[in-house]
Computed example of a mutant assay.
Amino acid sequence: MPLAGRSPSANPRNRNAKTYDWTTVEATAYDGPSPELPAKGGRQRWHRETRAWWEAVRRMPHCRLWTDTDWRFAMETAVLVEAFWRDSPSVAAELRLRSAKLGLTHEDRLKLRIRYAAPDDGDQVLTQTPAAVARLDERRKRLVDGAS
């Protein structure tokens, strides 16, 4: 007995046009302003692997696209990386989702439609920082002083 409904298309590709285009970023490490990991209370320091993760993330070429909220999201993700390396594997699923949103792997960047290109490839390459990173120290101080 045949199934109800339309028969499959002979050309099953997606006919919907993409609503946004690729972002091409110069394939050089980002060396612009980026926040430091916040100081931890007491004598405890960030795990060695967390510090290495943060240094790799803050130097990704597409970080020049990030705004203040993107940096905050990355810093919050660093807390999950810290928990993972401090023997809390239950955060692995959330860490994987956040890593994809940050575009940490080549596959993740393809999904985000970000590509790296050498400046001499002839592509229109973004080389400057579109938005300055805000210093959060002053805001934290105001929040703490206001709560007192």
Rank of each mutant, 00 (worst) to 15 (best):
K101Q: 14
L112S: 00
D87R: 08
R72A: 09
P89Q: 05
A93P: 08
E76A: 06
D120M: 03
D123W: 08
R86Y: 12
R96M: 04
E94Y: 08
T127K: 14
K101I: 00
A92Q: 10
T127Q: 14
I114N: 07
T77H: 06
A93Q: 13
E82S: 02
S90H: 15
T77N: 05
A117I: 00
V91L: 03
G103V: 00
V81G: 05
A117T: 00
S90W: 12
A93N: 12
Y116D: 08
S99N: 14
E107G: 12
L95K: 04
I114R: 07
A100D: 13
T127M: 12
H106S: 10
R98I: 01
P89V: 01
D121E: 14
A118C: 07
K111Y: 07
D123Y: 12
F84Y: 15
L80A: 05
A100R: 15
W85I: 02
R113K: 15
L80R: 05
P119C: 01
M75C: 08
V81W: 09
L102H: 05
R86I: 08
A78T: 01
Q124R: 10
V79F: 13
L95Q: 03
L110E: 13
R98T: 04
D87M: 07
A78V: 01
A118D: 13
Q124C: 09
V81Q: 08
R96P: 00
V125W: 03
S90E: 14
A118L: 11
L110Y: 10
R72N: 09
Y116L: 13
A74N: 03
A74R: 01
G103M: 01
E76Q: 12
A93L: 11
M75T: 09
L80K: 07
A83T: 04
L112T: 00
D108G: 07
D120G: 07
A74P: 02
G122I: 01
M75F: 04
R98Q: 13
A118M: 11
L110R: 14
E82R: 02
L80D: 12
R115V: 10
V125R: 04
E82D: 09
A118Q: 13
T105G: 02
R109H: 06
R96V: 01
T77D: 04
A117M: 02
D123V: 07
L126W: 04
L112A: 01
V79D: 11
T127S: 10
G122C: 06
P119V: 04
D121Q: 11
V91W: 05
D108P: 09
L97N: 14
K101L: 10
R113V: 06
R96C: 05
L104V: 11
V125D: 02
A100C: 10
E82T: 00
A118H: 14
D123C: 11
A78K: 01
E107D: 12
V79H: 12
A83E: 14
S88P: 00
A78C: 06
R96A: 06
A92N: 09
G122E: 04
S90G: 09
R86T: 11
E94M: 07
A83I: 01
P89T: 03
E94S: 12
I114L: 14
R109C: 07
